[in-house]
């Protein structure tokens, strides 16, 4: 708390207080909640908030990672380090296993991704581990379908979201009641914007993967973004690999996450850069570019 001489909170303290309240409600209302941890900044902030919400107890949730196999190596290392530091369990849902077991089929073609395949893996992992609430770092400002998401968001026994038939959410009273086989998603940082997240990371000095800071990297220009070179990249004839100083605004699969050219190598510089951005952060994610309602369609099926 920055000052206690005044009796009002600044916007970051109010957002933090709201998120801590939501996390404690999740803990009180569910039997077996987990934090969906991707290694991206939003799930890192949620994990940090959980640390604060339950201090001096340790975080009472396991972290769950849906592993597409198409990871940035830096993200996996970051994940393993944070698990060790917090002393919590890690649950991994593997998309590769879902493919091997024939639960899903790999997409074909040059823009093939494993993005949509995660839905099956996620829902299988939720069922196998008897998880009744998966806490995510989704924010309402990210995408238009997310603007109508609740803090406590109901999923039916097929894991599906029914956006037109959501439970009304009034004041700060959350209804997490469910029947056997159903589950919830909870979004403690619903009301945060990308800028709020960066300002908070800066204020709290939260550790984030090096990928967010400007660094030299081999990349290729595709769909208006710098896609990183990796073992999964298949080059087209006209494409060429170049080395650029870039950083990532969001982290997803290495195959679909586009970087931006940047010199921002400190949290200060990143926050400054983000505040001047004229494009949304998901503008660099090819998973959202497929159609006007790409996110809504995936969310209905059970996506994050």
């Amino acid at each position: 708390m920055s000052s206690s001489s005044k009796y009002y909170l600044n916007y970051l303290d109010e957002l933090e207080s709201e998120a801590i309240y939501v996390l404690r409600e999740v803990w009180a209302q569910f039997q077996n909640p987990v934090i969906l941890f991707s290694g991206g900044k939003d799930s890192i902030v949620v994990t940090h908030l959980a640390k604060k919400a339950f201090h001096p107890s340790k975080i009472p949730f396991a972290l769950m990672h849906v592993d597409t196999g198409h990871n940035f190596p830096e993200t996996i290392k970051f994940r393993d380090d944070i698990i060790k530091e917090l002393g919590v369990n890690l649950i991994v849902g593997s998309v590769q296993e879902s493919i091997d077991e024939g639960r899903v089929a790999e997409e074909k073609g040059k823009n093939a991704t494993r993005n949509a395949l995660q839905i099956t893996t996620l829902l299988d992992a939720i069922e196998a581990n008897k998880i009744d609430c998966a806490i995510g770092g989704g924010r309402r400002d990210e995408e238009k379908a997310r603007a109508k998401e609740r803090f406590f968001s109901h999923r039916d026994d097929f894991g599906q979201w029914d956006p037109k038939n959501q439970r009304p959410e009034l004041w700060n009273i959350f209804n997490g009641k469910y029947f056997e086989g159903e589950h919830f998603r909870a979004f403690p940082i619903s009301n945060w914007t990308e800028m709020d997240v960066w300002n908070y990371i800066k204020r709290e000095n939260i550790a984030i993967p090096s990928l967010y800071f400007a660094h030299e990297r081999e990349v290729v220009w595709r769909q208006d973004a710098w896609i990183p070179n990796s073992e999964f990249l298949v080059l087209e004839d006209h494409e060429e690999i170049v080395t650029k100083k870039i950083r990532f605004r969001t982290l997803g699969d290495i195959t679909i996450t586009g970087g931006i050219e940047s010199d921002a190598d400190t949290l200060e510089k990143i926050a400054d850069e983000v505040s001047g951005m004229r494009q949304t952060e998901r503008g660099n994610r090819s998973d959202d570019k497929r159609s006007e309602s790409a996110m809504e369609d995936r969310k209905r099926q059970g996506y994050f």
Binding site: D141, A145, A147, K148, K164, S190, E296
Partner: peptide, 17 residues
């Protein structure tokens, strides 16, 4: 926000901005 709303040009739920 939602596809149905865009198609019908109405807001049927609370949307946060």
């Amino acid at each position: 926000g939602l596809r149905d709303e865009r198609e019908q040009g109405i807001t049927i739920d609370v949307a946060y901005r």
